[in-house]
Write a protein that binds this DNA or RNA. Structure first.
Lengths: 262, 262
DNA sequence: GAGGCATACTCGTATAGACGAGTGGGCAAG
DNA sequence: CTTGCCCACTCGTCTATACGAGTATGCCTC
């Protein structure tokens, strides 16, 4: 209440035809944008906002739900509503699969995370053979079955990315690629050892709101979209040797690409 | 009502500890996923859902608001709630700025849209000199002032993208780049004519929920994120000659990139 | 037939109240 | 001092009700 009377939030405009709950959302949003509520700070409680604006609680909750869907705030049961802190961002450079980055014992994810001062983890590792979904199948040249490698990546305990790699079964069966730990340099190193020298990767980038399963898997708070990245690896023969389907928490990533001008 | 009694939606599980509005959202989501409600189809009205599930209207609205924030449905005042149709998607290929695509009289956007059978439009064109924001300034080598070119792109009347190009003022002032219409091949063709042969582009891709201003500008329905793309163009001297800040409706785009493996 | 109006249906906004459940601090008992 | 409980405060869920505003339809009038 002290925070309110100190003038962080003003009054409603009864002459405006803008809905009351939008006016409240506007005021709180502006206060956040201008830094009057700082990152991680607790907003006034619903009861305080009810009293300050003289409206019912549902109206206040309606206003807060707007800000939540915009990704500006997140609520914690029993504690309050907080300005959502911006997490550190992981930058994926366009040369991240270059051969020269592939000669270490650790995975690219691990190396990069440790360099950035974060604690990397990989879990939910599942390796199995399965019948590919139509879109995956089409990219791989319609194999009857594929090897699927599923894993989840975490930084400092927070899940940031979920990825599934699909490889034609005739190519991967019986090799170290079919093992939970594919060895130093990852599956791309193994593919090259098997004679599939990699030529290039195609990546398709989309953004959308997460499914409930993805919300759970990535522990996403509301108002955070996901980036969907589908990468296809081609060998020098022009054969698609792997498709990797990745879903990333959008607030944890920036993708960097370099395009030639010619 | 006939649709409901025909069994598209089932009953609630009173023994479940899952909130009622979530159960309702789950059921409707599943019906959409399984195609029992098709794209563009009208859902049962709130009143029908109230009757079917035997709950209050706020509970139904709460359930629908979940689906709306997931981008699955959108409501239209006075008409109903509809399964959101997936709009046609525009694919941005990684060679879209290649010199060979730059020799026509029309802009790349126009050519590509017409090839895809859509009606392209460009509006809100504004060209002015201004003081650059810090992040833009840093990318361009800290010029005191820049030329800013703002425009909005539409496909079949729907706004899909809003873009601002920034160029160092000393480079653009007095040239055709400072004109509303930059001429055939766009500003990249003009830059090359001015002796700045383009070498490569850096692109940074992010996804997030839109600001209210972006919702208005792109006429976004709720539950649709935006893709933010910041492209920096470098000439063969290594100088950054342009920064383009683009905000795209995420449901209208897929970005395609090709990465070398070496 | 054309125009306009009434009406019924849709979602949008807002109120008031109730109870549940998670959190944290203080107080009392051991 | 430590343990455990209670309580106050937080957000979560749900009900019931009311009126406003946009849309579509059909009927009535002209």
């Amino acid at each position: 209440m002290a925070a309110l009377s100190s003038g962080v939030l003003g009054a409603l405009d009864p002459t405006s035809d803008r809905a009351v709950f939008r006016q409240i959302a506007d005021q709180v949003r502006e206060a956040i944008d201008k830094g009057r509520f700082k990152e991680g700070a607790k907003l006034p409680s619903e009861a305080e906002l009810v009293e300050h604006f003289g409206v019912s609680r549902m109206t206040v909750r309606n206003a807060l739900s707007i800000l939540q869907s915009e990704g500006l705030v997140s609520s914690e049961h029993g504690k309050g509503v907080f300005v959502r802190p911006r997490p550190p961002v992981r930058r994926l450079a366009s040369d991240r699969f270059a051969r020269r980055h592939r000669d270490q014992g650790k995975s690219a994810f691990t190396v990069e995370a440790e360099a950035a001062g974060s604690k990397p983890e990989v879990d939910s590792l599942e390796v199995r053979e399965e019948k590919p979904a139509p879109d995956i199948s089409a990219r791989l040249g319609s194999p009857r079955k594929v090897l699927a490698r599923r894993r989840r990546y975490l930084l400092d305990g927070r899940p940031v990315e979920f990825a599934v790699s699909y490889l034609p079964l005739d190519l991967a069966r019986g090799t170290q690629i079919a093992e939970p730990n594919p060895g130093p340099g990852g599956i791309y190193a193994r593919l090259e050892e098997l004679g599939h020298r990699l030529d290039h990767f195609d990546e398709e980038v989309r953004a959308r709101m997460p499914s409930p399963a993805e919300v759970k898997m990535l522990r996403l708070s509301s108002g955070v979209p996901v980036i969907s990245l589908i990468r296809t690896a081609y060998d020098t023969e022009g054969r698609a040797v792997e498709v990797c389907d990745t879903v990333m928490a959008a607030d944890a990533y920036v993708l960097a690409y370099q395009l030639p001008a010619n």
